[in-house]
Amino acid sequence: MRLREVVVAVSVALMVLLLAYVVSAGGLGPLAPRELRELARSYLANAYNPWNVTQSSLSLEAVTAIVWDYRGIDTFFETSVLFASIVGVSLIFRGYRERPGIGGRGLSEIVKTSTRVLLPLILVAGVSIALHGHLTPGGGFQGGSFIAVLLVLATVVFSLDFLVERGLASGRLLALRSAGLLGVLATSVALLAVGLALGIDAYIFQNMVREGSELSMPQWLLDRPTGGTLLFFNVFEALAVAAGLALAFLVLSLREEEVGEAMAAGEWHE
């Protein structure tokens, strides 16, 4: 075992030294430069650019614009990774069933009451972060993970039983998750579908007017820009992330009795 540790340590140290050398020798350009990379400048100048709509997503927030518009396909498949992980978790615990009445008590009354007051406040904070994703820092993931942690917190504070009695069972979370994902999917191909129906050229993940396509999402809602698809993406993504993470945590936190029952059923394997 000692030898193995030494080998690992040496190779890791080599890699680290190499990395440090590349960094310090300017392999990534100067550290903390005064000039931006040209691509970054293009993103910053085009994220909200009503004077050049064909390369813009009309969002005040450059990061959300990149995440959901310029590199929308990345984010779509990133959501799919999360989806695959949740499917995987439910796959390895398949056959489980939440059973109320095992005797979860949760934490003390004070913590419970405080968390109860927090619930609507944090929920609305998460929703607001998601809704303002194209205006202020934040977006679908941020808002969704706020809500998800809230649900995790509620599971820990109130115990599973409480949540299951109040209807927050995995079936319902799965339905919410699917609704969110299908919403993301529908938003991503919405303009393409319209284009195909009308016989006009359109792109997957199209947002605003593009070269060769006149279709466009709404640019303003009331007195603020919407960023076209970004608002929809953020809302659906928040829903999907929140429900998905909460679902995964719920399945992981199943009590020994429940998991044991699912496992005891026995599965055939090769």
Partner: peptide, 30 residues
């Protein structure tokens, strides 16, 4: 045709693969 997108797709591929390996969860070796 994008270096980072290749990473995302690799992860989609890998995570599905990890999950599928443990499909027979009653098998400790799996």
């Amino acid at each position: 045709g994008d270096v980072f997108n290749l990473f995302v797709m690799l992860e989609v591929l890998s995570l599905s693969a990890y999950a599928l390996v443990s499909f027979y969860r009653d098998n400790p070796r799996a």
